[in-house]
Design a protein around this nucleic acid. Structure first.
Lengths: 340, 340
DNA sequence: GCTGGCACTCCCGCTAATAGAGTGCCAGTC
DNA sequence: GACTGGCACTCTATTAGCGGGAGTGCCAGC
């Protein structure tokens, strides 16, 4: 048996009411609040079907209905109209982001903005190293045998690493190394760099070979192994909204999960361009976040993605609003990065 | 009336038991668990005095006693023997910190280590800019009229800023600027730098004056105005230990406070060398953290302080243990930084 | 296929009763 | 004078019992 339009309408009404009131919603309340044009009894029949199909359930016999994860899924996939941002929200984004001085600042403002607008936990990934391109590499002598390698990427990110050289290096030599390295790597995507670094060693003159080998190994580390991603988090206090009702009684597992960078990266990773992804309940595959949903989106200049951002909240969340906000913020940040 | 030894002993016993059990402690339980050599009735009399003096209180008539903030204060000041770290803890510190590759890594490991050992929320401040010295300044051309200013400090911290130049600058000019700036500022403490920057402008030749002025203003920003401090946080999940009993029922205000960098900096700022500070209850002056205590310590090479670190937990915390751990970790990190 | 009516179920909130822990006080003892 | 045992008292936390109410499922009728 498939679901006719009215049943879908009933499901939408249930989701909307439940999200708002956080209480199981009954047939009478539904017809009162939404002009469905039918009687409570009819709605009850529809509800029975929806329950049969697994979209809603009763916390206990003779209580109202609550959407299941599948119900939210259907709601998001088929019943959600894109809710345009209010002018107030648009203005908030502008106001919040204007005057950001550097990448750190942009990321921090973004994450706070997201948390504030959605009233949920927000996560923003720094522009990913592997998807950025090298803008410039700098070598700074620290002592006679130590150099500091500083890498600046086109997204404004700066990474540094200490290089222990095999022997003393003079200014001339440093100059030479810097030249070669930049010549070869500047403008290249980090993901394309490793073979180029290899070449760099092969092409180097014998007397520089040792130094270059040493530098190359650190470079590789910086480019690849250490492409560990950085994250910013905000709005954990929002987890306490709605009492302890969400998250089945304890915030513990959620807070624990939020401390694991690996988990967060998984939540907002692997995104497709120009789409906003919604993971509902245990779709996110993480035990501790069984009763949480994640709305995430990639951002970057144009249609490329250099990082992800998103928000996490109870499955009982305002999906249309959250999706709209996440999408808008992702676009805004992407444009901001494009300007640099 | 002053407190004789036995009364102090009773207070200590109350604090220790309450910290452990999280339940008001009564006279009978006290004499059972601690060999006080007197009867419950005697202890009751002592308790009455301690209550009179404000060191303990009853949550309600005919319940056991609970230490007040003043009680904890007395306990920490006069009744706490320094508890040596267990070998296991020493080993944990070693194991955790070994192999840290750069400053970011050191800070992150430290904060997680602290959170794990104390089972509380941990905060670590990055080495403060104003107390560090400039190791090197680098100017990297980004476009014809834009430079990236990169500052490396002796604590390994790297800050970068974009400089918008008044007109196109050639490589030679950049070279010259870099030379002058390093000549003047390398090795200087950041707090001493502003007047030197001023001099730099005054001493510059007229044809470089405009460029130098521009650079100087960004330098000043980087050195001073933007000496905003960075922090790392970990262990928020530990707030949920001990049920919702600590923090009078809701984590909300605590989580909110923890999101404010300004507040965190206040908590672990202004430390004196070689001491561990304990702020109990509203000694920390922050409304949201009324029922929280903070144990903090400065760290840095030798007796200098380049940053602070600490942990935050309920006033009902294991002070001796926490103090010992915080102190040990602070020392360890200080030594680690000294090695670089 | 929709509706109104009706009996049924179960939760929630209220009150009352009880058990238990702990106190304060007092008279007695060393 | 300090400590102790005993005792009455207070207050909390827990449990049980009891409607009220919301909501359901089902059925007969339109």
């Amino acid at each position: 048996m498939s679901l006719d339009d009215r049943k879908l309408e009933v499901l939408r009404a249930i989701v909307e009411d439940y999200v708002e009131t956080q209480e199981p919603v009954g047939s009478k309340a539904l017809v009162d609040r939404h002009k469905l044009g039918v009687s409570p009894a009819t709605v009850r029949n529809d509800m029975a079907v929806l329950e049969e199909e697994g979209y809603i359930r009763q916390p206990h016999t003779s209580a109202g209905r609550v959407p299941t994860d599948a119900g939210y899924r259907l709601f998001v996939d088929r019943l959600t109209k894109i809710k345009p941002l209010s002018p107030a929200e648009r203005r908030a984004i502008e106001r919040f982001m204007v005057g950001a001085v550097d990448l750190d600042d942009v990321v921090h403002r973004t994450v706070r903005l997201l948390a504030q607008l959605t009233r949920q936990v927000a996560v923003v990934q720094y522009p990913s190293l592997s998807r950025s391109a090298v803008r410039h590499l700098e070598l700074v002598p620290i002592s006679t045998t130590r150099l500091m390698l500083v890498m600046i990427t086109d997204t404004g990110r700066v990474e540094q690493r200490l290089v222990e050289m095999p022997g003393p290096v003079g200014d001339g030599e440093v100059w030479e190394l810097r030249l070669r390295v930049n010549e070869k790597l500047a403008g290249q995507r980090l993901s394309d760099a490793p073979p180029l670094v290899q070449k760099l060693v092969e092409e180097s003159v014998p007397e520089r070979r040792a130094a270059m080998t040493c530098l190359a190994s650190v470079l590789l580390e910086t480019l690849v192994e250490r492409s560990e991603e950085r994250l910013a988090l905000a709005g954990t206090a929002n987890l306490t909204r709605g009492g302890v009702l969400d998250f089945q009684g304890t915030l513990r597992p959620v807070l624990e999960a939020l401390e694991e960078e690996v988990i967060l990266l998984k939540l907002i990773g692997d995104l497709e361009p120009r789409t906003t992804r919604v993971l509902i309940g245990d779709e996110n595959q993480i035990d501790n976040l069984r009763s949480a949903s994640v709305v995430s989106s990639g951002y970057g200049p144009g249609t490329t993605i250099v990082g992800g951002l998103g928000v996490l909240g109870p499955t009982r969340m305002d999906y249309p609003g959250t999706i709209a906000t996440v999408r808008a913020v992702a676009r805004y940040v992407g444009d901001l990065l494009a300007q640099n």
